[in-house]
Amino acid sequence: MESRKEVFLGHVVLVIGALIALYPFGSILFQALTPAPGSTAQGLTLENFVGAWTRGGFSRSLLNSAVVAIIVVLLTAVVAVLAGYALSVLRFRFRTIVFGVLLVGLVMPSESRIIPLYSMFQSLGLLNTRLALILPQVASSFPLAAFWMSNYFAQLPKSLQEAAALDGAGEFATLRHVYAPLGMTAVATLSCLVFLYTWNEFMLALVLMPDDASVQTAPLSLSFFAGNERTTEPEVIAAAAVLVALPVVIAYFILQRRFMKGLLEGAVK
């Protein structure tokens, strides 16, 4: 039923769309590989990356980002598995109230909590620490993560719980030996999503760690580094941007199914 002309036209449109989607990142990648003015390098070069790495302190900020993101992902996964188990398998009485409270966090923008968070961490003396970035991000990931795990556990057969109970396993043992191992695929997709959000977070980092370069995350460092256009060549800034994007881009191309599933299902919720 499909005519040749339609097939051709449809794919031409798709290719144009794909090129538009690729162009901005492709162009900074190309710019980053181009020798900066005053450089003696010919053709394509990696020296801009070396420049960004040493002058922009990106070895430290990329490490900070990794530490923050990994801790947020692990913490979120643990509390979400526990909560999802309670909400779906144990099915205690007030769970609709809990779902309602979680829904609030799903729809609220971070602007609605950023000012008191700043005051809170200021009075605790925790501004400019990694903790000030980790805790709010676990808090903002928790509603989606709890719904996610709860939905996943709820679709597993009831007989699992009954069989575990017959074997004399208690509630926690059932979670540890039956539900948690089965939930690992859901945890993996969820973790991709949480990692992505945490790695890319900008506003919380800007407000909660503005003054101490030694704890700042990569997007924040990039923002400050790119702000010094008068002293830094655009080629080096482009290299810095590629460095910041690269871990996520590589993870995305390796785990694209998981990312896509996570982003689409996360969006639907």
């Binding site: 794909a18 890319n200 900008f202 990569a218 924040l220 910041v244 881009v249 990312f259």
Partner: peptide
């Protein structure tokens, strides 16, 4: 087509 979604906004 999904690539723009995963890039950090700063990038």
């Amino acid at each position: 087509l999904f690539l723009p979604q995963i890039l950090a906004t700063v990038v």
